[in-house]
């Protein structure tokens, strides 16, 4: 994993505890309860803001609080930063009320990233559930920008209902890229929905994977990731070929407070992206 190796700057002052102010350029409502904030990245000392696909920022709604939110924009487009946010509670609701020109605080980027260099020359299976597509979107942008470097790309996406599907237009565009399949399924459909209905794991029966040369990247609710990893292993991928992005409540984001502890790991600095064997034994433990 490349971690933060190519980061040109971190937002906020060292050791990344003080947020920098960033301006909201646009708010896009993706679904009824999920929106994307397009933000002008802060440019401390005139340097550009760079991140690796899979990393997150601590996003601060002034006067309310801070949340860990993955970066969902294209790592190659450094003039705009996107965070796609599911409105679930206090901070994510406060962020949802922002308008163009409002300000937020940002600290980051933090954490490990998806294994893009390791994926060169391989087939890639991306399995996302719900808002788990957001942390994977920068990977998809990167793979498609460097399309010739990778084998087949399979994007499997599970959503609650057709109305909850994120990035509809982009999913359609991605499906037209060479040697790229996008398969979407919903847990509940209505008569206007002509696509798949069922859980994301059921989509694997429509794919013939060349398992030895495939790398899988999985992100979604923990239970969805657990079943997806089991299905991938059942289909012949070894645990070492599977990466996933974990979540826990966070405070400091830099490995100091212990809020995000997951067994012996801190999700904020050892993760959020892990290779499955690093955390496999923890996934099944109730008390973790």
């Amino acid at each position: 994993m490349t971690g933060t190796s190519n980061i040109e700057m971190r937002i906020g002052s060292s050791p990344s505890m003080v947020p920098s102010v960033a301006i909201v350029r646009r708010v896009i409502w993706e679904t009824d309860d999920t929106y994307t904030l397009l933000i002008d990245p802060p440019r401390g000392d005139g340097r550009t803001f760079a991140f690796n696909a899979g990393q997150f920022n601590m996003v601060y709604a002034f006067g309310t609080g801070e949340s860990a939110i993955s970066i969902s924009s294209d790592p190659f487009r450094m003039n705009i930063l996107a965070h796609t946010i599911h409105r679930v509670g206090t901070v994510t609701s406060a962020l949802s009320r922002l308008r163009r020109g409002d300000t937020i605080g940002l600290r980051g980027p933090f954490g490990t990233s998806w294994p893009i260099e390791e994926a060169v020359g391989k087939d890639i299976c991306i399995a996302a559930g719900g808002i788990g597509l957001a942390p994977l979107r920068p990977v998809i942008y990167t793979l498609l920008r460097r399309r010739e470097k990778f084998g087949r790309i399979m994007i499997l996406y599970g959503s609650r209902s057709p109305l909850d599907i994120l990035y509809r237009v982009e999913l359609e565009e991605w499906s037209k890229a060479p040697n790229t399949e996008v398969i979407i399924t919903v847990d509940r459909g209505d008569s206007s929905w002509k696509g798949h209905i069922g859980v994301v794991t059921s989509l694997f029966s429509y794919l013939k994977m060349d398992t030895p040369s495939t790398l899988a990247m999985v992100c979604g609710p923990e239970v969805m990731m657990k079943y997806t990893c089991e299905e991938l292993e059942r289909r012949g991928l070894s645990a070492a070929q599977i990466y996933l992005s974990m979540e826990r409540n966070m405070k400091c984001g830099i490995g100091l407070c212990g809020h995000c502890q997951f067994g012996p790991k801190f999700i904020c600095k050892d993760g959020p992206v892990f290779r499955l064997p690093q955390i496999k034994n923890l996934l099944d433990k109730k008390e973790i």
């Binding site: 309860d33 847990d187 859980v199 609710p221 239970v223 969805m224």
Partner: peptide
């Protein structure tokens, strides 16, 4: 898995992860 409604969307309806 379908019954668990893992992507629960409304505030307060979700599980451990997002």
């Amino acid at each position: 898995l379908q019954l668990l409604d893992v992507y629960g969307s409304a505030i307060g309806e979700r599980g451990e992860n997002y």
